[in-house]
Structure formats: structure tokens, C-alpha cells
Amino acid sequence: MNIVVNGKPQELEAMTNLQQLLEILQLGKGRIAIEVNGEIVPRSLFQETILQHDDSLEIVQAIGGG
């Protein structure tokens, strides 16, 4: 199946959960926040959030800014 992560297409196996996606993207350790289809998913729910075809994700971090 296909999802979109930060505006880029990403191919995934069916039944992949959010935690597994982070490991694929090598983002497992960082301080991040995630929206799936515009809704924030708390870290405690990453494991049980099964991604669906056409899901759109935003994964953000803190960077330098004033």
C-alpha cells in the first residue's frame, strides 16, 4: 500500500503500525510529533495505530528558529 509522509510517497506493507514505520524511517529515537490525516497521534498509541492505504502523515521536530 502507499502512504504519504511529509509530502513524499512511501510504500509500505499492509498492517504496518506507526512504530514500525518510524523504525523503517530511522526516526525511532528522536523527539518528534506525528499527525495522521490531520490528527495528532500520541506516542503511547504508535504501536496500535495501523496505517491505512492513502494515509497522509506529518512528522515534525524542533529546529532552530526565533
Binding site: 509522509v5 511529509n6 509530502g7 513524499k8 524511517l25 530511522q26 526516526l27 525511532g28 529515537k29 528522536g30 523527539r31 518528534i32 510529533a33 506529518e58 512528522i59 515534525v60 521536530q61 524542533a62 529546529i63 532552530g64 528558529g65 526565533g66
Partner: peptide, 20 residues
């Protein structure tokens, strides 16, 4: 100290330190 919130760079080196 202020910070901005932006998309992570996909494909960035996972071991590279981040601001925080």
C-alpha cells in the same frame, strides 16, 4: 530559548544530533 517546528528530513542520518 525559542525553537521552530518543522518537518523532519526523511533520509537524514539517524545518528546526527538534533537541536534538542
Amino acid at each position: 530559548i525559542t525553537v521552530a517546528i518543522r518537518r523532519v528530513n526523511l533520509g537524514q542520518n539517524a545518528d546526527e544530533p538534533s537541536l534538542l
